[in-house]
Amino acid sequence: MLLKRLRGLFSTDLSIDLGTANTLIYVRGRGIVLNEPSAVAIRTDPGHNGSRRIEAYGLEAKRMVGRTPQHIQAVRPMRDGVIADFNITEKMLQHFIKKVHDARFFRPSPRVLVCVPCGATQVERRAIRESAIGAGARQVYLVDEPMAAAVGAGMPVDEPRGSMVLDIGGGTSEVAVLSLDGIVYSASVRIGGDRFDEAIINYVRRNFGALIGEATAERIKHEIGSAYPGKELLEMEVKGRNLSEGVPRSFTVNSNEVLEALQEPLYGIVAAVKKALEQTPPELGADVAERGIMLTGGGALLRDMDRLIMEETGLPVLIAEDPLTCVTRGGGRILELIDERGRDHFPLD
């Protein structure tokens, strides 16, 4: 414990958005210093009784997804916003924490704030906490993602007025109404960027009789994906394995087809927002109606996502500045507020 405190003198406080798709780390006073995919490549050594060792982390590992030989496995240790593989998550966190403490004499032992989905169970929260401690953190705070997202988006969460935030991440979408530094209502649905990719893969297999990988589906989503019918039709040439012929074939997908593919997950999110509005106390609901819903997370970058929510709810929908990093920046700001106002100021685990 003493050694950890000593090492803590040489460590910086971190806010970590341990996301399903990406892990972002915010360092106090330095900003976002790491933004890498939550992916790890594991090599199995045939000569050493099948012992496993980490081959690559982050971006390098993500490039290997779907392109690995038999003895290398590229995995994403987070699923639906929570830990799917405890040991690999711990190793990945350890690597990232060490990476942001470059050129350090001591092994870093920082205070860490980790943002977790508000729908995470106690078991899932404990797994995240222990993973962070195992990665070297001397103190771990857990904060609900919608709170961090709202703070990171610059919403006045400390005011006695309702603020609604919708954070669409890689594994989950979180919707919450906040007031007076607390969460009045929150809900989490296990729908996010990953579900969008899956929906595209399934659509292509069903309608084009072709098999595409996760990376290709993600590329389709980024380039021509949209949540609301647009004025122009975008097209993209895609290569996939034809299921009947068994050979790679090229075909063209357009934005309307992608929109059709995304209908189911999109309406899952819309339903969660509508339910949140129904459950919000009327005074806070009026505040939300006047000011609007703030969109954060990578899902906010899907074309016309704000338009879809706007049409479905009849409320103004605003996209936050730099929506991808809102949660992490908000976590960093909460760390500062803990020092300024005390730990009890925010609902932390």
Binding site: A103, V151, D158, R329, R333
Partner: peptide, 21 residues
């Protein structure tokens, strides 16, 4: 901006600093 950090956080001691070494 009520919720976004604008304060300058004093840099923490780094073991790589010559003075610290």
């Amino acid at each position: 901006e009520p919720a976004v950090s604008t304060g300058v956080v004093p840099p923490e001691a780094r073991s790589s600093d010559p003075l610290m070494r």
